[in-house]
Design a protein around this nucleic acid. Structure first.
Lengths: 202, 202
DNA sequence: CGAACATCGAACCGAGCGGTTCCATCTGAG
DNA sequence: CTCAGATGGAACCGCTCGGTTCGATGTTCG
């Protein structure tokens, strides 16, 4: 990353380095909160290099968000598999990982959803939609393997708790939001198993 | 709103008219998505008038957000009181109102939380925090009058479901998020009443 | 060595931003 | 009628933005 002056260290490596640095800066300051010039200056990279690798600021943002989505999914799946085979334990692990994330001092909400909110045109909304899809898949799988009949509905309730807790941790400085969301999710799973299949009544 | 040329219709009325128009525009386009010039042109108001009434764009934003928070609270309280005295019915009414809001074609998430996410410095975050406080008060009151022992915890879980459902309705185009959140909230309340007081186990 | 390549640094561009000012116009109160 | 006040319209200001271009510097490979 020092990148002397005319180093041909490896374009792919330069690209990865930019991606890594830009991820943090765009997350902390917001997509429109930092310009390309300051971005480049802070990363120690010239604008020409950035534009050769990503084409535009929007291209950089898209790459950052997609990489972030990948990283988050890997991190969630790792927590789930580390929790063993028990659906209850896996569900608890998802929310424990959430709590751990919320406690990081640099936490500022979900970077992907924040981006989609800031840039309400552009690729961020697509990335966010896809990202939520994948998170829902994980939760649906847990619910299904727990043997409930309405796994899809239950998973959506888990997901609402998950993103709701993240928003509260951010905008309400609620340090116990993830823990309470976990207890709520476990209670819902328990209730869904004892109660066979509640017909949806509006 | 026609406001011929030099009309002294009433400064307060002008202010209210600006506030009303700006609320919609800033919500739809985002705080940074529309400039003061376009804002004024669309509203049919001169920049001088806007700056005389609100001092700065940030002042306008603050006024818009505070008015919005007031309006939302009034709307929630109206739904709650219209639901009678039963805590269950009141809780259901809160989420039914949510569903109704999500179905509006102009729905774009919670304007206050969106603003706080877009403008992560500035007054929006304070308004958002206060707004969540007040929403939590309503839910805590419902939980308390339902006779549960851990009303505060339960209310935070309701709030997480509420904001989570709103985020999913926006970013995931999830039209049934509010309904599922309602069912989850009711199940949690039911479970909290049958189960006396679950000791918080981390 | 020499050609190709990647990079930095800086200058530059047009556009849009938030904000200010001036003035002609119109209204309502005295 | 007259005058103070509120307004619209337009020009203007300094600044920052995303993006482009150019030359100098250094590395890698044949």
């Amino acid at each position: 990353m020092p990148v002397a002056k005319g180093a041909t260290l490896d374009p792919a490596q330069t690209r990865a380095s930019i991606l890594r640095a830009a991820t943090g800066l765009l997350y902390q300051r917001g997509l429109d909160g930092i310009g390309v010039a300051e971005l480049c200056a802070t990363m120690g990279v010239s604008k020409e290099t950035l534009y050769r690798h990503f084409g535009s600021k929007e291209g950089l943002v898209r790459a950052v968000l997609e990489a972030r989505s990948q990283r988050i999914m890997a991190w969630v799946l790792k927590a789930v598999t580390a929790a063993g085979d028990e659906p209850y334990a896996q569900l608890a692990a998802v929310f424990d990982a959430l709590a751990q994330w919320h406690e990081e001092p640099t936490f500022r909400g979900c970077g992907i959803l924040n981006a989609a909110t800031q840039q309400h045109e552009g690729p961020a909304r697509l990335v966010a939609h896809h990202h939520l899809d994948r998170q829902l898949d994980v939760l649906t799988d847990i619910a299904r393997r727990a043997g409930v009949s309405n796994a899809t509905h239950l998973a959506k309730q888990f997901l609402a708790l998950r993103v709701g807790a993240t928003v509260l941790a951010d905008h309400h400085a609620d340090t116990e939001a993830a823990l309470l969301a976990k207890q709520a999710a476990l209670a819902l799973l328990r209730s869904a198993i004892t109660t066979p299949a509640p017909a949806p009544r509006p």
